[in-house]
Amino acid sequence: MMDMLAVKHLSVAFDTVAGRVQAVRNVSFSLCRGETLALVGESGCGKSATCRAIMRLLARNAQITEGSVELDGQDLLKLSSSAMRKIRGNRIAMIFQDPMTALDPTMKIGRQIAETITLHRRVSHAAANRRALELLAQVGIEDAPRRFHQYPHEFSGGQRQRIVIAIALAADPDILIADEPTTALDVTMQAQILDLIRASQARTGASVIFITHDLGVVANVADRVAIMYAGKIVETGTSQEIFYDPRHPYTWGLLASMPTLNTSGERLRAIPGTPPTLIHLPQGDAFAPRNPYALEADFLAEPPMFKISDTHYAATWLLDPRAPRIDVPDFIQKRWEEDPCASKSRS
C-alpha cells in the first residue's frame, strides 16, 4: 500500500519563559490510504503538537527544528502559507476536542458548514447549502432543515461534536485528524461518535489520525497504534501487536494501570512517578526513572527502535540481544485470560 502521509524525523520545540521545551523529538510515522492510526499518550507527550505541526497550526512560540511532513511526496513544511491554506480543511481536516470553542458561537451552523465548502470548491451558495444539509443529516442531526438555521448554543455537547465532524468532512478530506474528539463526552455519546467517524471513513475512504489517551477508544478505532512518551514514539505496531504482544515497559504500564471490568480486590498497578518536564530531559531513556524494568543502559543512552516484526517496533534496551531476557509480565498476559467477554482467538 502506498503511504499517503509520511512524517519523517519531526522535532518541535517551544520557547517558554522557563526554557526550551522539546515537545516532539524525532517522530516518524506513515499513514496509508483508508487506515486509522492512533497516537496514544499522556498530556504533554507531544501527540497534539505532532498533529498541529502536520497542519502547520503550531503556536507562535513553537518551532519545527527538524524533519519533514510529506503528503503524496510533497513536503508540507516547505509550502507557502497560501498553498498550505489550500491543503488545510481541504485535504487534511481536523476535529477538535472541544466543540464549543471549535464552532463560531455567532454564526448559524448551516453557514459554518457551507462556508467550508465554498472556501475549497467552486460551487454556488445554493449547492453548498444543499451539501451542508446533506452532511448534517449524515452526521445524525435530526430535523436538519430546521436546525440548519440554529446557533451552536442551541445544540447539546454531542450534537456540537457531530457538527464539528460535519465541517471536517465538508471538503471530503483525504486525512482526518481527530484530537481527542470524544474526551468531553459520555460513554454512550462517545460510542455514537466513534461509529460516526468510522462510517464516514468507510464512505469516503479517508485516513484518520486519532489522538487519544483512552486505550478503550484505541482498541475500538485503530488499525495501527503509536505510543508516545516524552515527545517520542516508544512503540508502534498494529492494534493486535500493541494490545496482545506489547513490548515496551511503558505500554505495559499503561495497559496495566487501568482496571478492566474483571479487576477487583487487588491494588491497581500504577506507573510510579510523573512524566519528566521536557525542558531538562534526563540522560538516557526519558522513561527510565519510572521504569521498573530499566537496565543500566537505559540511564546512559536512549534506546533506538528495535524491530519485532515488519509492523512492530519498540524503543527499549530490553530488546537488545545483550539484554537479559524479560518476558511480558504476567499481569499483561493474564488480562485476557480473566476476561470472559474477550475473544479467545489469539495467536
Binding site: G216, V218, A219, T260, D339
Partner: peptide
Amino acid sequence: SLLSSIPRPDPDTE
C-alpha cells in the same frame, strides 16, 4: 445501554 458502551482495551472485543 450504558454498560454496553464501555470501551474495552481489547481490539477483538471491540
